[in-house]
Computed example of a mutant assay.
Amino acid sequence: MTHWIDAHHHLWDLEAVYYPWLMARGVERFFGDPTPIQRNYQLSEFQSEAAPCGIGASIHIQVGAENGLDEARWVQSVADANSDWPMAQVVYCDLTSTELSAQLDTFQTLPTVRGVRQIVGRAPGEDAQTGTNALLDDPQFLIGLKEAGICNLSFDLQLVPELMKKTARVLALAPDIRVALCHAGSPHDRSPAGLKEWAQNLRALSNLPNVSCKLSGLGMFDHNWTLDSIRPIVDECLEQFGPKRVMFGSNFPVDKLYGDYATLAEVYRDLVPAESHSAVFSETAIRFYDLEVPWEADSILNR
Score class of each variant (00 low, 15 high):
Ala50Cys: 07
Thr35Trp: 02
Tyr41Cys: 05
Ile37Lys: 03
Pro34Met: 12
Ser44Val: 14
Ile59Leu: 14
Ser58Lys: 09
Ile61Leu: 15
Pro34His: 04
Gly32Asp: 02
Ile61Gly: 06
Val63Asn: 15
Asn40Gly: 04
Asn67Gly: 03
Ala24Arg: 09
Ala50Glu: 00
Trp21Phe: 13
Ala24Gly: 00
Phe31Ile: 14
Arg25Leu: 01
Asn67Leu: 11
Ser48Thr: 04
Phe46Asn: 02
Val27Asp: 00
Ala24Cys: 01
Leu43Arg: 02
Gln47Met: 06
Gln42Met: 12
Tyr41Ile: 06
Gln38Arg: 04
Leu22Lys: 01
Ser44Asn: 05
Glu49Leu: 15
Pro34Ser: 09
Ile59Pro: 08
Leu22Tyr: 13
Gly56Asp: 10
Gly56Ser: 08
Met23Tyr: 03
Ala57Asp: 03
Ala51Gln: 11
Gln38Phe: 03
Val27Asn: 01
Val63Lys: 07
Gly56Phe: 15
Gly64Lys: 06
Arg39Gln: 03
Ser48Trp: 14
Phe31Leu: 08
Tyr41Met: 06
Ala57Leu: 08
Pro36Ser: 10
Ala57Glu: 02
Leu22Pro: 00
Arg25Ala: 11
Ile55Tyr: 12
Ser44Thr: 14
Pro52Ile: 05
Arg25Phe: 00
Glu45Ile: 06
Asn40Trp: 07
Gly68Pro: 13
Phe30Asp: 07
Pro52Gln: 07
Val27Lys: 11
Ala51Trp: 11
Pro36His: 14
Gln42Asp: 01
Gln38Val: 04
Ile59Arg: 08
Ala50Thr: 04
Asp33Val: 01
